[in-house]
Simulated assay, not measured.
Amino acid sequence: MELELILYLALMLMTAETFGWIFARIGQPIVLGQIIGGILLGMLFPPTTEVIDISMLGVLFLLFMAGLESSVDELKEAGKVGFLTAVVGVVVAFLIGFAVVYPFKGFKQALLYGALTTPTSVSLTVRVLMELDALKTVEGNAIITAAIVDDILGIIILSVVISILVQGGANSIGIGIILLKVMAFLVASIYITPPAIDWLLRKVVRLGFADSTITLSMAVLFAFAYLAEHMNLASILGAYLFGLALSETEFRKPIFEHTRIVAHSIFIPLFFVDVGMNIPLKNISHVGIFALIFTVGAIVSKIIGCGLGAFIAGLNLRQSLRIGIGMIPRMGVELAMLAIAMNAGIVGEDAYVVIVLMIFLSTLVTPPLLKMSFSRENSEET
Rank of each mutant, 00 (worst) to 15 (best):
F98S: 03
Y240T: 07
S159Y: 10
A234Y: 06
I192C: 11
E131M: 11
I177R: 08
I96C: 00
I323K: 11
I323H: 08
E131K: 15
E229K: 15
L40Q: 05
K136V: 02
K105E: 14
S301C: 10
I346N: 05
G20E: 05
I192P: 03
K302H: 04
V365F: 09
M372H: 08
A291D: 11
G276C: 07
L270Q: 04
V160S: 10
I164H: 00
S373R: 05
N378D: 11
I155S: 12
L180F: 13
L95S: 07
I359C: 11
T382D: 11
H286Q: 14
F107P: 02
V356I: 14
A219W: 04
I30Q: 14
V353Q: 02
S320G: 10
R202G: 05
K76S: 11
S247Y: 08
L361P: 02
L244H: 12
F45K: 08
L227Y: 07
L7A: 13
F256C: 00
G345T: 08
T259A: 15
A115R: 03
A336Y: 01
L158T: 12
F98A: 08
F272N: 04
G168S: 11
R260M: 12
A184P: 00
G168Y: 05
F45A: 01
A210N: 13
L62R: 00
A291F: 11
G97V: 04
P29D: 12
V90L: 11
G345V: 01
V273I: 09
E229M: 12
A142V: 06
Q28C: 07
L84A: 00
A228N: 03
R318S: 13
S163Y: 03
G140I: 02
R206L: 14
T120P: 04
S172L: 15
A99M: 13
A170P: 08
L3P: 07
T49M: 11
S301I: 04
W21S: 08
S159P: 10
F374L: 09
V347T: 15
L111Y: 07
P29N: 07
I6C: 00
P195M: 10
S159R: 12
F45P: 07
A225M: 11
L9G: 04
G305L: 07
G140F: 05
P195V: 12
R376C: 03
V262I: 15
A245Q: 08
G33D: 08
T213W: 07
A351Y: 03
D133V: 01
L57C: 00
N278F: 02
G106R: 07
R260Y: 15
F64P: 02
E381H: 10
G314M: 07
V347N: 03
L227D: 04
F209Y: 14
L221M: 14
V353G: 03
G297I: 10
L3A: 02
P47W: 06
G58A: 09
N278W: 04
A16E: 03
V347K: 01
E257P: 00
S212M: 15
R322D: 00
M183N: 05
L317T: 06
A225R: 02
L370S: 10
I328D: 07
V160N: 01
K371C: 06
A146W: 13
L40S: 05
S71W: 05
M231W: 15
N278C: 06
E2A: 11
L241M: 14
Y240M: 12
G169V: 12
D350Q: 14
P269V: 03
I284S: 03
E377K: 15
S265Y: 01
V220R: 01
T363V: 14
L158I: 10
K76C: 06
T295A: 06
F267E: 01
E2T: 09
G82A: 04
A228G: 10
